[in-house]
């Protein structure tokens, strides 16, 4: 592979001058400078796909908001990470994520330990701005250790990426279309029948919501396992 020459670029975020490498994304440079941008599908150590759109920021001169996690930096660009427009877009996006599936937190496995829930607090969304769609999907509890509940899935594809990029098993894909998309195992068979799944559990511990969870496990063990897997991702990212 031909490596592109990496240069240093300087530009502005919220009127503060920052510098980054030309191969870095806006989000990465913002993080390095302690400028906070909300994210959901992004996970350090995995590729960036820009699927959730929560990290939208404003770039001066651009007609539309752009996702910070997939946008490369440019010399002299001027970026804004908060504004009335950005806040209202983020709230609308979060509302759409909530309304697409059934997020009945009070009876969810992930209640109190869910990144989607955390976003509602972070973005101060106290009610959905759009009506709920009331879709219902079958739960796959066939695997001996894990459960897949598409009713809580936000289609962030973290599970797909970790299984492909880190575990190398490539057992998960996104199947179906649009609003009815679901993650599927192999050729859309019950999880237990997947030939490629190694039962490593990485997908479960990168999932931000209650869509993937382990059966019969204590809260403490969930925390420990999640830390192990998230650290593994971080370390790999740093060593790259």
């Amino acid at each position: 592979m031909i490596k592109q020459k990496v240069r240093v670029k300087s530009f502005k975020i919220n009127d503060i001058t920052v510098t980054g490498r030309s191969d870095q994304t806006l989000l990465e440079v913002a993080k390095e400078h302690d400028i906070f941008i909300p994210t959901l599908c992004y996970l350090e150590g995995l590729s960036c796909v820009g699927s959730c759109r929560l990290c939208l920021v404003e770039v001066k001169g651009a007609r539309e908001l752009v996702p910070a996690c997939t946008s490369k930096i440019k010399e002299d660009m001027e970026v804004f990470t908060t504004s009335e427009k950005i806040d209202s877009h983020r709230k609308m996006i979060l509302s759409m994520i909530f309304s697409e599936r059934s997020h009945t937190c009070s009876v969810c496995e992930a209640n109190g330990d869910c990144e989607l829930q955390d976003k509602s607090v972070e973005l101060q969304l106290d009610h959905s701005l759009v009506p709920y769609i009331d879709s219902r999907f079958a739960i796959d509890a066939s695997h001996k250790n894990f459960v897949h509940d598409p009713n809580r899935c936000i289609l962030c594809s973290r599970c797909v990426r970790v299984c492909n990029e880190i575990e190398g098993a490539n057992a998960i894909n996104i199947g179906g279309r649009g609003i009815n998309s679901m993650i599927i195992h192999d050729m859309d068979e019950p999880w237990i029948d997947s030939q490629s799944c190694t039962s490593c559990g990485k997908c479960v511990y990168v999932c931000p919501t209650g869509a993937l969870y382990e059966k019969e496990i204590t809260k403490e063990d969930v925390t420990t396992k999640r830390e192990i897997i998230r650290n593994l991702l971080k370390n790999r990212a740093e060593n790259e």
């Binding site: 909530f98 059934s102 997020h103 009945t104 937190c105 009610h127 959905s128 709920y132 009331d134």
Partner: peptide, 19 residues
């Protein structure tokens, strides 16, 4: 003032919407 998840999201009461 909408008090509680049922008033705000439908919550448990709205679970029957799925059926």
């Amino acid at each position: 003032l909408a008090l509680g998840d049922c008033a705000i999201t439908g919550n448990i009461s709205a679970m029957k919407n799925l059926y």
